[in-house]
Structures are given as structure tokens and as C-alpha cells.
């Protein structure tokens, strides 16, 4: 996997819980181009342990001088976002992956409806730049809790003009998905990114209204949930490793010196899928990639976010 070495050029406190980071290539060279909706995975060395978190690229894909990411401070998490907020300063050096796009605009869409909740606004910032450049028809719906949580509203007003629709919860404004989805022309695509209940509500409404699956897009990166520790046997590597409660299986394998494939590390892309050869207990699937039937069959697992509760787990890796 190609890696980029970057330096933090600027940090801006956007709201009380969101920081915006400007990243430049360590030698000042242009960064790779990307398409709207792309993300990078940022590696962080926290007390000797490598954390890797995915963050959407927010800048215009036209601008290759710098990358822009925003991080919401998650107090009840494993420390990645807190490290970004407290440990990363202007001048800090970080490693990131090349951009990957798991949330791309459909080029055949006649109209695009973008729906963001809170920090879920980030992937849309680069998508809007692409839509503006292509002159495509779109609506941007941005929901947040209260005025002070509306990160990037001023920037969005400039980018979107009257295509921007704000929904401020504290002022009693909530997006009515039923209305939004009921009266759209054929060929419309909808994209949603935000808290899980919001994403699920929109997906369910779209399904009920008969929207084609191919026209409904969502992106949710999950943080690996904290759980109980368990042991894993790795058949090809002929090893047994412990997965501590605050580590994912993927991280535990990396700590053990293995280099499993990965892309998003958030249960969305399917790249790290591993075959389960034996399990005498329960697999705890936390990903959005496997179908319900695949989860039930118990043959596959996504080690980036999923865990197990069992005495014996044997993976084909």
C-alpha cells in the first residue's frame, strides 16, 4: 500500500469538539489528486501503539498543495481522535495512505441529494467541489444539533448558494425524509453520511418508497468497538495471538508483525475480509460490509471492527 508522509501545516478549532487539519507533503511536493468523497487513513503512534483512523478529504480535489481533514473529538473511544486533538501540533509529522474513494458520486446521476448529519458533512465538501465543477444539479441538506455545532456553514454557503438547506435541531428543524425522497425526478441519487440512526432512517425510508438500491449511497466508518479480550489462532501464519479489549483483531495481527490487507479500517470496504475456519462460540459482526446471510453463516469476518466471544477461533490467514 502506498504511503504518504505529511506534515501538519495548520490547525483550526472549528467548533468546541471539531478541529480542522491542513496537511502538506513533507517536502512540499504536490499531493496525489483524488475524487470527491475520498478518504485517507491516518497512522498515529500513541505510546508505541499504532492507531489508524480513516478521515474524509474535505478540500477541493483540484487543490493538490494540501489535504484537509476534520476530526471530531470522541471522548468515549480508544484515543485516536483525542490524540489528534491533544497530541498533534502544527509541524507534527503523520503518515497517511493514498486516497481511496468508497463514497463516490454516480456519474450517471441526473440529480444528487446530499444529506449530512454533524461531522458527516466532511465527505460532501469534496463532492460539492466536483459537482460545482461539473455543473451538476444537487441539493445539500446539512443537519446539526445547534448553531454552534454547525461547522463549515459559512464555507458551505459560499460553495452551494441556494442549494444549501440547513436543519438545526435545537430550532426544531428536522429533515423530513419522507418528503425529501417522495418528490424527486427519475435518475436522482441520494448520499447520506452521519450518525447511525439518521443513516438507517434514511435507508429505510428510501427502501419503503421503492428507491433502487443502486441510487442510495451511504458511508459510515465505525470505530472498532471496545470489548472483551479473546484469543485467535491464525492458520496460515501458524500463530496464536491475544486480542486485547481495546484493540481490534486487525490491530492485534499488526502488533504481532503481520501485514494483513486493509483499506478503510471502518467495516465498510471489505478489503480485510478473512475466512473463519473454526469458531466454538459467537462471532460479533460489527461491519456494514457482509450481508445478513453472510454474517449468519459464520464463514467470514472483518477483523477491522468485528470481534468474537469464544474459546477457540481459527482464521485462514
Amino acid at each position: 500500500m502506498s504511503i504518504l508522509n505529511v506534515r501538519v501545516a495548520e490547525i483550526e478549532q472549528v467548533t468546541d469538539v471539531v478541529k480542522h487539519f491542513t496537511l502538506v507533503e513533507e517536502n512540499g511536493r504536490p499531493l496525489p489528486r483524488f475524487s470527491g468523497g475520498s478518504h485517507v487513513v491516518v497512522s498515529m503512534n500513541i505510546n508505541g501503539r499504532i492507531h489508524r483512523n480513516p478521515y474524509s478529504l474535505m478540500g477541493s480535489p483540484e487543490n493538490t498543495d494540501s489535504y484537509h481533514i476534520s476530526v471530531r473529538r470522541q471522548e468515549k473511544s480508544r484515543g485516536g481522535s483525542v490524540f489528534m486533538h491533544d497530541g498533534v501540533k502544527v509541524g507534527s509529522e503523520l503518515q497517511i495512505t493514498y486516497p481511496v474513494n468508497l463514497f463516490s458520486l454516480s456519474k450517471l446521476g441526473k440529480k444528487h441529494i446530499l444529506v449530512a448529519g454533524g461531522i458527516g458533512i466532511t465527505p460532501f465538501m469534496s463532492q460539492i467541489a466536483d459537482l460545482n465543477r461539473l455543473g451538476d444539479d444537487y441539493e445539500m441538506h446539512y443537519a446539526f444539533r445547534s448553531a454552534e455545532h454547525g461547522a463549515f456553514v459559512e464555507q458551505l454557503k459560499q460553495m452551494c448558494g441556494d442549494r444549501l438547506h440547513l436543519h438545526i435541531e435545537s430550532e426544531g428543524q428536522r429533515i423530513n425524509f419522507q418528503n425529501l425522497l417522495s418528490n424527486q425526478p427519475l435518475g436522482t441519487h441520494i448520499y447520506v453520511c452521519g450518525p447511525e440512526p439518521m443513516v438507517n432512517a434514511l435507508l429505510l425510508t428510501a427502501k419503503d418508497l421503492g428507491w433502487p438500491k443502486t441510487h442510495v449511497h451511504s458511508e459510515q466508518f465505525l470505530a472498532p468497538p471496545i470489548g472483551e479480550s479473546f484469543m485467535v489462532q491464525l492458520a496460515k501464519s501458524n500463530m496464536e495471538i491475544e486480542v486485547p479489549g481495546d484493540m481490534s483483531m486487525l490491530e492485534a495481527m499488526e502488533e504481532a508483525g503481520l501485514e494483513p490487507d486493509f483499506l478503510c479500517r471502518g467495516g465498510a470496504c471489505g478489503r480485510c475480509e478473512v475466512e473463519v475456519l473454526e469458531c466454538d462460540g459467537a462471532l460479533m459482526h460489527n461491519d456494514h460490509y457482509l450481508s445478513d446471510a453472510e454474517k449468519a453463516s459464520g464463514n467470514k469476518i472483518m477483523p477491522c471492527v468485528s470481534r468474537a466471544r469464544c474459546q477457540k477461533l481459527l482464521l485462514n490467514i
Binding site: M1, P32, F34, Y98, V100, L263, R271
Partner: peptide, 8 residues
């Protein structure tokens, strides 16, 4: 191929 990355 769906997972093919730019730069690789």
C-alpha cells in the same frame, strides 16, 4: 479490482 488503489 474494486479495491484497486490509486498509486498502486
Amino acid at each position: 479490482l474494486l479495491h484497486l488503489q490509486y498509486g498502486s
